[in-house]
Simulated scan of single mutants.
Amino acid sequence: MTNERILIVEDDQDIRELTTLYLGKKGYEVFPADNGFDAINIVKRESPHLILLDIVLPGMKGFEICEKVRELTQAPILFISSKRDSVDKIKGLEVGGDDYITKPFDFAELEARVRANLRRSLISSDQKEKKKLSYGHLTIDLESYEIKVNDQPIRLYAKELQLLLLLVNNPNQVFSAEQLYDQIWGIDSYGELKTVLVHISKLRRKIEVNPSRPKLIKTVRGFGYKFSPPE
């Protein structure tokens, strides 16, 4: 049994109640909300470990809620939507989401995604053995998880940070997009390649001096990506 706290933000009463009931029986403490205002208050009050967030909601939409929630927590956010358009999936990742599941969904698949994202939401203890990593203009504090570029703090979302740490802890090792997805997200999903590409692109924009000519996160054409420490 588990005791992680999950917030579900869904205006469809049947889906909200059935999902709350199902996850509750699996041992999760579930907090339901049907609008953005209540969702943000629950995040402030309960500090959930994971958030299930519908995109189409009355008033404040899911993408806007995600951006506001990201100012409060780095807990994984799984978008729920009836749309299967990859544009929405990419938009969800860009505003700070971690995963995406479409309606109607199978509860067993939903729980698998919940477990995978919870498992990967915490940086492994072996990555904390060093206090700080420094790569030229890039500094990573492994106690506070503060990332600095040229001594200026930058903001990384949870999956961006996990991806960066995986790469820097395995310098010069080439990872395929599929391997990165498996390591960070942990389950098969439609559009997984785009998920990796979006996060690599966002990381480069944040940590590279010249994102169009990356020196840290390099593409190995035909194989994948690697972190190349400055000489």
Score class of each variant (00 low, 15 high):
10 E>C: 04
150 N>K: 05
190 Y>S: 05
70 R>P: 00
128 K>C: 05
203 L>F: 12
65 I>R: 00
28 Y>M: 08
124 S>W: 05
122 L>G: 07
117 N>S: 15
72 L>V: 03
39 A>R: 05
160 E>F: 12
112 A>C: 12
214 P>R: 10
50 L>D: 04
140 I>W: 09
139 T>K: 06
15 I>W: 01
70 R>Q: 07
203 L>W: 13
84 R>F: 05
40 I>A: 02
104 P>I: 08
31 F>S: 02
56 V>P: 03
38 D>N: 15
190 Y>H: 06
102 T>R: 02
15 I>Y: 02
77 I>Q: 05
125 S>H: 03
205 R>C: 11
35 N>K: 15
168 V>L: 14
146 E>N: 12
57 L>N: 09
167 L>W: 14
50 L>V: 03
195 T>S: 15
225 Y>L: 08
79 F>G: 04
45 R>M: 07
89 K>I: 15
14 D>W: 10
43 V>E: 03
135 Y>D: 09
22 Y>Q: 11
166 L>I: 14
143 E>Q: 13
130 K>C: 12
54 D>P: 03
19 T>C: 09
80 I>K: 00
134 S>F: 08
150 N>S: 10
77 I>C: 05
92 G>D: 01
25 K>M: 08
3 N>A: 09
147 I>A: 00
167 L>C: 14
14 D>K: 08
84 R>G: 11
186 G>R: 09
218 K>H: 09
73 T>E: 04
39 A>G: 09
218 K>Q: 15
7 L>V: 00
167 L>F: 15
92 G>N: 02
170 N>T: 12
24 G>M: 03
205 R>M: 14
126 D>M: 01
230 P>E: 11
170 N>K: 11
60 M>Y: 00
198 V>G: 00
30 V>G: 06
171 P>K: 06
150 N>F: 01
224 G>R: 03
204 R>Y: 10
154 I>E: 11
172 N>E: 14
82 S>R: 09
5 R>A: 06
203 L>T: 06
109 E>T: 11
99 D>H: 15
69 V>T: 02
69 V>W: 06
57 L>T: 07
105 F>H: 06
49 H>T: 02
161 L>N: 14
24 G>Y: 00
216 L>A: 15
71 E>A: 09
129 E>P: 04
68 K>H: 02
222 G>H: 05
91 K>T: 05
72 L>S: 00
145 Y>W: 10
7 L>Q: 05
41 N>R: 08
114 V>P: 08
142 L>G: 04
162 Q>F: 13
128 K>P: 03
50 L>R: 03
216 L>V: 10
184 I>W: 11
2 T>Y: 08
88 D>A: 01
59 G>E: 11
62 G>Q: 05
118 L>Q: 04
62 G>W: 06
112 A>K: 15
29 E>A: 13
172 N>G: 04
225 Y>N: 08
83 K>A: 01
145 Y>V: 07
227 F>M: 12
43 V>G: 04
226 K>R: 13
22 Y>N: 11
150 N>Q: 06
106 D>A: 08
175 F>P: 06
73 T>F: 00
165 L>T: 13
